[in-house]
C-alpha cells in the first residue's frame, strides 16, 4: 500500500515550507539582529522568535525560530520570504490573511498559527525602533491581539465595551472566551476592560 488517494493534510505550499523552512535561525551564521520579537504562548502550543536586520527603513534580512505545529512553521517561513525588502511600514501591516493566501489556505482552526508570525515581525520592528530611539508611528495603526489563544484584539474589546454588549468581565468572558485556554492574558484584559469602561463611562 503506497498510493494514497487523499492529499496531504495541508496545501502543497504548506508542505513545502514545512519540509524546507526558509530563513530559520542558525547559530553558525552569527546573525546579528537589529530587532527581536518574542511572541506566543506555550499553553497554546506555539512560541516564536523573529529577528530582523534593517537597512534604509526596509527589512534587509530575517531569521526566525518557532516551537509549533506544521502550519505555524510554514506560515512563519512564508512570512519571512514575504517580508524581505518591505519597508518597515509595509512589513508592519503584513496581514495574516495575505500569508494564509500565499500558502494556499489553512484550515479554519489553524488561523491562530498564522497570526503568530506577523505578530512576531511587528514585535521585532517595535524592538528595532525602540532600541534606536526612533518614533514608532505604526504601533497604534494596528489592532493588537490581547488574547493569543482566542485571537481577541483590543479593538474588539473596545467595541464590546463601547456598545455596552459587555458591561462586566463575566459578560466579556462569555462573549469572547478570553483567557479560557492558557489564562495568561486575564490580568491584562481585566486592566484594559477597566480602562475602557472608564473611557466610555459605562
Amino acid at each position: 500500500m503506497s498510493n494514497f488517494m487523499a492529499q496531504w493534510v495541508y496545501s502543497p505550499a504548506v508542505k513545502d515550507h514545512f519540509m524546507n523552512p526558509r530563513n530559520t535561525w542558525d547559530e553558525k551564521e552569527n546573525f546579528v539582529p537589529d530587532g527581536v520579537g518574542d511572541v506566543g504562548s506555550l499553553a497554546c502550543g506555539d512560541q516564536m522568535r523573529v529577528m530582523i536586520q534593517v537597512e534604509n527603513d526596509r527589512i534587509k534580512a530575517i531569521r526566525w525560530l518557532t516551537y509549533g505545529c506544521a502550519s505555524a512553521i510554514a506560515s512563519t517561513s512564508m512570512l519571512s520570504e514575504m517580508a524581505i525588502g518591505l519597508t518597515l511600514e509595509d512589513a508592519y501591516h503584513l496581514a495574516p490573511e495575505a500569508i494564509t493566501e500565499a500558502l494556499g489556505g489553512l484550515p479554519e482552526h489553524k488561523f491562530h498559527c498564522s497570526v503568530l508570525g506577523d505578530k512576531g515581525l511587528r514585535a521585532a520592528i517595535d524592538d528595532y525602533l525602540e532600541k534606536n530611539g526612533l518614533p514608532n508611528p505604526y504601533r497604534h495603526t494596528i489592532a493588537k491581539i490581547v488574547c493569543e489563544c482566542h485571537n481577541i484584539t483590543d479593538v474588539q474589546i473596545e467595541n464590546l465595551v463601547k456598545t455596552k454588549q459587555a458591561t462586566t468581565l463575566e459578560e466579556l468572558q462569555e462573549i469572547t472566551k478570553y483567557g479560557s485556554t492558557c489564562g495568561k492574558c486575564k490580568a491584562d484584559i481585566a486592566g484594559l476592560f477597566d480602562e475602557l469602561k472608564h473611557i466610555y463611562n459605562v
Binding site: C44, G45, C69, S71, C113, H150
Partner: peptide, 20 residues
C-alpha cells in the same frame, strides 16, 4: 508521516481545539 511512520499525538494542534 512523511517518512511513512504513522503515530498519534496529544498535541492541541492535531485535535482541532486549542487544548492538549
Amino acid at each position: 508521516d512523511l517518512e511513512g511512520i504513522q503515530v498519534s499525538t496529544g498535541s492541541a494542534c492535531a485535535s482541532g481545539s486549542l487544548e492538549p
